[in-house]
Amino acid sequence: MPSSASNPVWRRLRADRAAMAGLAVVVLLLLLAAAAPLVTALEGQNPTAFHNELIDSATGGVPIGPFGGASARHWLGVEPGTGRDVLARLVYGAQVSLSVSLGATVVQVALGTLVGLAAGLGNRLADTVLSRTMDLTIAFPGLVFAISLMAVVPGSFPRPVLLMLVLGVLGWGGTARLVRGQALSLRSLDHVAAARLSGARSWRTARREILPGLAAPVITYAALLLPGNVTAEAGLSFLGVGVRPPTASWGQMLSGATTWYQADPTYVLLPAGLLFATVLAFTLLGEGLRTALDPRAKSRLRRTRSRRSRQVAST
């Protein structure tokens, strides 16, 4: 990649204040998640220890004290019902949320790129078969399938990895369709014909003339997939089919919140705000990347999205 092609991208991204704000939040979240053990050590708590003495058993377990029982020892209060430390659960929840969504995105993009390339550069039969498969996966009821799969996978399988794989395997269709379309249109360009005429082997032609042209749209698409995966993980955990207790997750905290929000609003607003900030930050960054990488790509993306490559939906 010539440096002259990457510099203007960074410059355009830097000029986009919303995207830079998104980037800052994303970096902060990543640091927080990575430093989760450090944060909890600093506070002197851990995410799984019960503190029965901090909740009021007469009211069914409402934390004692204002703001969810926030104190010098529990900076953001404790969980109603169990008295577990909220800050510790939030930062460990960030670990789950970010690792699952990043992992799922990697699986989606890797699978999608592979299948899309095979369809776009392969022969007609391969294209027909793979395109049909893409249509099928895109049409699949993603969330339903993800929930259902939880019923048949043995409980011993590590849940975060399972979530990553399930979201990844169900959500590669959009990327594949994008890559196939791009590969097909790039393949028909004359500079690819010129490379063939020079006698170059097909892999050399693909590597030099086609793959570099795919980088920008794939990165853009991946950046837009990410927030969807954050939402999907939170949704599955909210429904109780995501990560298993006692592992902490934002979605799980929110599902518990349904019964607590009148007695302890802090406990609802913290994970809700964090989830919202995460998704918004990733979305802003993705939008910024999209315009920075290719200011004219808007219409192309709209078209691919309008043909419903909405991912594991969020209803």
């Binding site: 990649m1 010539p2 092609a5 360009l189 004359d190 500079h191 014909a193 010129a194 490379a195 005429l197 020079s198 006698g199 170059a200 050399r204 030099r208 003339e209 570099p212 042209g213």
Partner: peptide
């Protein structure tokens, strides 16, 4: 062959020197 559209017949990501040298490198 010389192509009709001089823009699409050159890879926008590669220098014109590379475009000309490629056939020589390959053959």
């Amino acid at each position: 062959m010389v192509f009709q559209d001089p823009l699409s017949s050159l890879n926008p990501r590669r220098t014109i020197g590379d475009a000309i040298a490629d056939p020589l490198r390959v053959q």
